[in-house]
């Protein structure tokens, strides 16, 4: 579904990613792990067009989307739940979710049943259901994370990018987030997950890539990576 070849990207003159290649087959959950500053978030930002790639190909569903503006990439079916949640704080929970479906409501993507999908999100995240009319800025961190994920899902995306959905959450909520990701995987949502909790990510994922200083240094089925002594020592020790 998503195939990245030799992606080079960065900020200004600083090159962060060096020839990153990875693949996310349809219906699978792929995780990108690595230490802080390895380029995980930068990779996602380059995929969704928030920063323009300097070179390389990003092929989604057969079409090269590298270099398109963010909104055009979203309209082609890539949803990105960004680092730091970035919910629209002065809008209600319901409006945030509706905006997730903006390309569907305005005809840029197949409409489907937006109202039914809204209800599906409220079923998946009951906490949001209780707070439909509340302003997103007044939600707790965990609720905002749920909202950011639900908002991205409202696109009915071909690929869902999740950037550190567990960041800053209490352990109980981190478990809840991973349980939700597992449920989405059962529903065969194609996902690329960036996570600091490498062990937890590899437990839920099908396949994993290890990113180090902007380069992919290891990759393989999640189970194999989890047992790889080098990967364990470098990334899994502290988060077990």
């Amino acid at each position: 579904m998503l195939k990245v070849e030799k992606l080079v990207a960065g900020y200004g003159k600083v090159q962060v990613l060096h020839d990153v290649s990875l693949e996310v087959p349809e219906g699978t959950l792929v995780t990108l792990i690595g230490s802080n500053g390895a380029g995980k978030t930068t990779t996602l930002r380059a995929l969704s067009g928030m920063i323009a790639p300097q070179s390389g190909r990003i092929v989604m569903d057969g079409a090269d989307i590298a270099g398109l503006p963010t909104h055009a990439i979203t309209r082609r079916g890539m949803a990105h739940s960004p680092e730091g949640r970035r919910v629209f704080s002065t809008l209600s929970v319901a409006d945030n979710l509706l905006l997730g479906a903006f390309p569907r409501v305005t005809g840029a993507r197949p409409k489907g049943d937006v109202a039914a999908d809204l209800e599906r999100m409220y079923a998946l995240f009951p906490r949001l259901s209780e707070r439909r009319t509340q302003l997103a800025g007044t939600l707790s961190g965990g609720e905002q994370q749920m909202l950011a994920m639900a908002r991205a899902l409202m696109l009915n995306p071909k690929v869902l990018l999740l950037d550190e959905p567990s960041m800053g959450l209490a352990p109980r909520l981190v478990e809840e987030v991973f349980a939700t990701i597992a449920r989405l995987k059962q529903q065969r949502v194609t996902m690329l997950l960036v996570e600091q909790f490498a062990m937890a990510a590899l437990e839920v994922a099908d396949f994993g890539y290890v990113l180090e200083n902007g380069r992919v240094t290891a990759s393989g089925p999640a189970g194999v990576l989890r047992d790889d002594p080098a990967v364990r020592a470098a990334y899994l020790g502290q988060h077990g």
Binding site: M50, T70, T74, L99, L155
Partner: peptide, 25 residues
Amino acid sequence: SIYGKAVVATANDRDAAGLMGINTS
């Protein structure tokens, strides 16, 4: 209106609005 909400979303957070498929320019 959904377009009005897109304006408010852009005012809130331009990058995030772009991720919603809103042409913020």
